[in-house]
Amino acid sequence: MRPLGGLLVPLEGAGEFVPPSTSSFNSRPLFPSAGWEECHPHEGAAPASCTDFVPAWTDAWLTNHVCQAAIAALVVIGFWLWMARKQQIVPGKRQFVGEWLYDFIRNQIARDVLGSEYRKYLPYLVALFTFILVNNLFGEFFPFMFPTFSKIGFPYGLAIMSFLLYNAAGIRKYGFGKYFVKMVLPPGVPWYVTWLIIPLEFLSNFIVRPATLALRLFANLFAGHLVILVFVLGGAWLLEQKDNLFYNFSGGVSIAFSFAIFALEIFIGALQAYIFTVLTAQYVHSAIAEEH
């Protein structure tokens, strides 16, 4: 057995353990240009010869994660097209699943939050919920094993969509001026407090709320995926160490426990999809609701 210090700091053995970090979330170009691999090593700095490496224009944006999001969109479109085919009065199994999911979003999210005006927004909410759900489930299942929304750009994109949606809904109902005043002006306070509160309401309604919407989704999936990486990679590394039964045993426990974390992540992925959709509906509601 090794001294106790070996438990905390791996001393020798097969390879240094590289803990998962933010670099585990780096995207790769779908079609990397020549020389891309050498200049983006998995760990450490790029070699000096890379100073004049010119990436192809697709390197920056056509990445595996963008591709994954596009596939998720295709999956969602395909799923709903398939569910909408050959509708019957008495639903079969396929139609039952589709109606169950649709009814869940309609009754629990859209109608519950938006009241009688829910129908206009239902298609977007259905698409939003299923798109986030599929992307989150990508984090637990093959072939991707990576939650798309643990890249901050994707949640920002969705938050911008929600921002446009609720502002457009409000402007359409009240007109720009009236809507803006409604969102910004605090009712029933003395005028000298009003001027102090107006920037608060503006920031809160137009910037902080959509930003937190994106950050909540991102942070949950980022943290969840990182935890999974720690358990799986750390466990695998511990299993590989020779002449140390304690390491191997803890590695086995860690890998076994990672399945519980996977289950937790599936739950969190579904929950975050639900929360994002509910809050989007809620923002629309607060944009079109009368004063209360």
């Binding site: 939050v113 709320r209 929360i275 509601h285 609701a289």
Partner: peptide, 19 residues
């Protein structure tokens, strides 16, 4: 659905908290 008033109770609490 058309009789449901334009008000909320369940998820409203969550939204209020976030606000």
């Amino acid at each position: 659905a058309d009789k449901v008033p334009l008000s909320t109770d369940q998820s409203d609490g969550f939204d209020k908290g976030m606000r």
